[in-house]
C-alpha cells in the first residue's frame, strides 16, 4: 500500500509542526481500512491496515516526545495492533503454501499409482495407499488445520484489540495529544 503524501511539510519549521501533520495522516490511514478489515475474509484490507499501523508506529517512535504523554501510549497500542495483524499475515502466507504442497504431492501420487496400474482396465483399491507421498498427508493436513485455527484465534484477538482501541478512544486521545506541547527540558 502506497503511503499517502503528507502536504505542507517544511524543513525550516519545527519538528512538532511537521510531525503533527504526518501522525494525523498516518492515523487516518489506519482507520481507513475499517470496517472492511474487520471481516475475516478481507485479507488484503487487513494487510494494508498492518502496513498503515507500521507507518504510524515508526513515526511515533521518533516524534512522540513532541506531543502530550498519550502519544507514547498510542505508539504502544499501535505496536500491539501491528503485531497481531502481522501474525495473522504469517498464517495467511503459510496456509496456501501448505495446501499447494498437499495438492502437489497428491498429483505426484496419482501419477505414480497410475503407472503402477500398468495397462489395467481399472485401479486396484490397494494401490490407494501405495503413492510415494502417502505418509506425508497427515502431517500436512494437521499443519493446515492448526494454521486455520490459529488464524481464527488471532483474528478474534485483533477484533478485541480494535474494539478496545475504539472504547479507549485512542484516535481522539492521540489527536488531543498532538495539540499538547510538552515543556522543553
Amino acid at each position: 500500500m502506497k503511503a499517502k503524501k503528507v502536504k505542507g511539510l517544511d524543513p525550516e519549521t519545527p519538528l512538532a509542526d511537521n510531525a503533527r501533520r504526518i501522525v494525523q495522516t498516518r492515523l487516518d490511514e489506519v482507520h481507513r481500512f475499517t470496517p472492511r478489515a474487520l471481516d475475516p475474509r478481507r485479507v488484503e484490507e487487513l494487510h494494508d491496515m498492518r502496513i498503515a499501523a507500521k507507518r504510524l508506529r515508526y513515526v511515533l517512535e521518533v516524534t512522540a516526545h513532541c506531543f502530550g504523554p498519550y502519544a507514547d501510549t498510542a505508539r504502544k497500542r499501535t505496536k500491539e495492533l501491528q503485531d497481531v495483524i502481522g501474525e495473522i499475515h504469517d498464517c495467511d502466507v503459510l496456509a496456501p503454501r501448505v495446501d499447494a504442497l498437499l495438492s502437489e504431492l497428491r498429483s505426484a501420487d496419482a501419477q505414480a499409482i497410475l503407472q503402477r496400474a500398468g495397462g489395467a482396465d481399472d485401479l486396484e483399491p490397494r494401490l490407494a495407499t501405495r503413492g510415494p507421498n502417502a505418509t506425508r498427508y497427515r502431517g500436512l493436513q494437521a499443519l493446515a488445520a492448526w494454521l486455520q485455527a490459529r488464524r481464527a484465534l488471532l483474528h478474534d484477538r485483533f477484533l478485541e484489540l480494535w474494539s478496545r482501541w475504539g472504547r479507549d478512544a485512542v484516535k481522539a486521545r492521540l489527536e488531543y495529544a498532538l495539540e499538547e506541547h510538552p515543556a522543553v527540558s
Binding site: 524543513p11 525550516e12 519549521t13 519545527p14 519538528l15 512538532a16 509542526d17 506531543f67 527540558s185
Partner: peptide
C-alpha cells in the same frame, strides 16, 4: 530532538 528542533536538523 525537541519539538522546536528544525525539521531538517531532526532529519
Amino acid at each position: 530532538l525537541d519539538p522546536h528542533t528544525p525539521f531538517a536538523r531532526a532529519a
